[in-house]
Design a protein around this nucleic acid. Structure first.
Lengths: 189, 189
DNA sequence: AAACGAAACTAACAGTTGTTAGTTAACATG
DNA sequence: CATGTTAACTAACAACTGTTAGTTTCGTTT
């Protein structure tokens, strides 16, 4: 278990603050105060405020991209792929509660890396869409507006970072299974 | 059709900017520039930046509260109530695309009205939860973790403001029906 | 014509913003 | 012991923040 560098600590604390108030509302002096140092001292470890945000968001986005590539290139059927996507989101979200808030809410402040982020996101959504379309074609899932299906499922998964922390002592396997059931079979008896 | 006051116009434009960049990242000079006037002139029409946010969020939150009260006091069964909730969200969200972004992302900057907003929101969620619990008790819907069910449905509905504008020429009745089908019956064939 | 109100303006404020430069103290390495 | 590195510090910057005060412009009402 190699311990956290000071830089990693700053980024972790920043992500927490970004989640609570949003990127723009967090000042370098806020961040410094929580770290117990002066704002100027932060710059011994990080390049800029921008760069903290970039690090948080891009690393997460790439993690999702890699996970999706693995899933899509497998030989699973549609439902199994969807279950793996749910599992992927539960895993990454539960391990990056704070970072997920920036990914969802502060991506528009990325500046130079904005285009790259947007490409990753649209690639991800295209992969998702093609899984659904394959499922419709094979008769595995119902044929009703894949766009709405994707919006509904993906929105739920993207918001896990809000919901997970509200439940303490949550079992992640349990959550994955429950989500899988609800998202795929609905709530009707 | 009574036309918009200058104050209402400012609030509408502000909501649009808040959606694009978030409340904290929008300056009064940004807002003034879009309005075609100087920042100081805004104060002939509005009290403060804070007050713009408060107006946007509280009026929307109250609209949801009123809608929910009507639904909950009806004699409908659980599924019908859920369908009315879906309809409520589609209606309010489609009519307040920009304001919904503030409601979802900038409520933490409300300051004095924060407590009131949080009360409205938790009342709304409690009503939602009790509808689900009644549905489980009566055997209308499946008995799997109402909290996860609520999270999934409510998250999807709360994010409609992101998704609706991406689709032009969308039929709102159509959307309501499709959402109802997907959220209640799932996607499994 | 005179007075009024609405809505714009200019100028300025006090505080905050991200960031840089230069310095110092503690500690590890030669 | 001397040296170098790390990570903190103080001081300062230029730009930007929300907001106020006081003034001007102009169409409407008396």
């Amino acid at each position: 278990m190699k311990s956290e560098t000071r830089q990693e600590e700053i980024i972790r604390v920043a992500a927490k603050l970004f989640k609570e108030k949003g990127y723009s509302a967090v000042t370098m002096r806020d961040l410094a105060k929580v770290m117990g140092i002066k704002a100027a001292s932060l710059y011994n470890h990080i390049k800029s405020k921008q760069d903290i945000l970039k690090t948080i968001i891009i690393s997460l986005a790439e993690e999702f991209t890699e996970g999706m590539q693995l899933i899509q290139s497998s030989n699973d059927n549609c439902i199994d792929k969807l279950n793996k996507i749910i599992e992927l989101h539960v895993k990454i979200s539960s391990q990056n509660i704070y970072g997920m808030a920036s990914l969802n809410n502060d991506w528009m402040h990325l500046e130079e890396k904005l285009g790259y982020y947007q490409k990753l996101r649209s690639d991800y959504e295209n992969d998702f869409r093609s899984i659904l379309n394959a499922g419709i074609a094979s008769g595995e899932i119902v044929n009703v507006k894949p766009d709405v299906m994707m919006f509904s499922i993906l929105t739920t998964l993207r918001s896990l970072y809000i919901w997970i922390p509200k439940k303490d002592d949550i079992d992640l396997n349990d959550l994955t299974n429950t989500l899988s059931h609800i998202l795929i079979n609905g709530i009707n008896k």
